[in-house]
Design a protein around this nucleic acid. Structure first.
Lengths: 173, 173
DNA sequence: GCATGGGCCGAACGATATCCGGCGTGGGCC
DNA sequence: GGCCCACGCCGGATATCGTTCGGCCCATGC
């Protein structure tokens, strides 16, 4: 729904800071972007209302939670029609081992990102939850050795945007 | 580093709530899990110190940020040796379009999750940033139609854990 | 020059985070 | 069986914070 909301430099800085620590106090966030707390609150609320910020969440260590093994399971669904697709997605999303489901364009229709305690659980998942389903025509599994985040999800911000100049100009529309 | 930290039902409930809204006040979080605010603060701090909680972040809408197109780029690196692998990962992670990098066991060595403004950017990324590199032997791109989150990253919690019984027993070790 | 809209700010009030001392329970040890 | 210790939990107190509100100031359009 939200498409290409106009963001200025201050918005981007806010998002960058929040992405690094979403539980920062509004006061500290305001200081970090050189705004008054009240103004900063306005900005954040606007970003939420605009749909840019869709929520706040906690980053968890899957290994510490007893699920150190992660993998991508590629799945082909045949026939590849809406009812079957929807059903498959619903089924996959409901599995507690599933972290994310991607519907792809390509030879494989889906990529299912899973986190499990051990190899046995992975096997069970593939055999009982995927290949056992009639609409699933093909499955292959890729173990994840290691993973890394990319940079914060932001257009490059010019580094000169630091000085606390009031700059009381209208925001881009 | 953190491996299989013991978690009780209350911890799991805390994580579930935080995963749904990481900016909830400690007071409300405490109420949601039937604890005193001070005790709840202790719990959360312990989860952070134990490495279960690795941080708090904001969920952003890539489309609203002007990058509605997402894809997985599968990459083969040859020869597949540590120095080249490290170099490739560093390069990929530094690209602003990259959301995550996965090192895989399988025919493809890496899966790079990217978000871009349009098809042209995707093409540029593949040609200039991946196939142009000498260690990259093969690249193929899968567009992401749609994606969904799985359930909260938690072992199933028994639903009976709601009543506010003091239950002043020692936590599992 | 004047009216208008919007962004920004500061003060104030209510709510919150956080620390601390103490209590009660359960388990280990003798 | 009885004692001691460790630990989880709580409630109160203080400093800090979130949030609202009214008003200022600049930029724009007429």
């Amino acid at each position: 729904m939200p498409e290409n909301v106009p963001l200025d430099t201050v918005d981007l800085r806010i998002l960058r800071v929040l992405q690094n620590d979403a539980r920062i106090t509004n006061r500290d966030l305001a200081a970090a972007v050189h705004l008054a707390p009240s103004t900063c609150l306005d900005r954040v609320r606007r970003l939420r209302d605009a749909g840019v910020i869709t929520g706040y969440t906690v980053r968890l260590d899957a290994g510490a939670l007893g699920r150190p093994l992660q993998a991508f399971i590629a799945v082909r669904v045949q026939p590849h029609r809406r009812p079957l697709v929807a059903e498959f997605v619903a089924h996959a999303r409901a599995l507690p081992e599933v972290r994310a489901v991607f519907h792809l364009a390509g030879p494989d229709d889906f990529l299912v990102h899973v986190a499990v305690p051990g190899v046995g659980d992975l096997q069970r998942l593939v055999l009982d939850e995927f290949t056992a389903r009639p609409e699933v025509s093909h499955v292959h599994t890729n173990l994840i050795f290691e993973q890394w985040d990319g940079p914060p999800l932001l257009p490059p911000v010019s580094p000169r945007a630091s000085p606390p100049s009031p700059a009381r100009s209208p925001r881009p529309r």
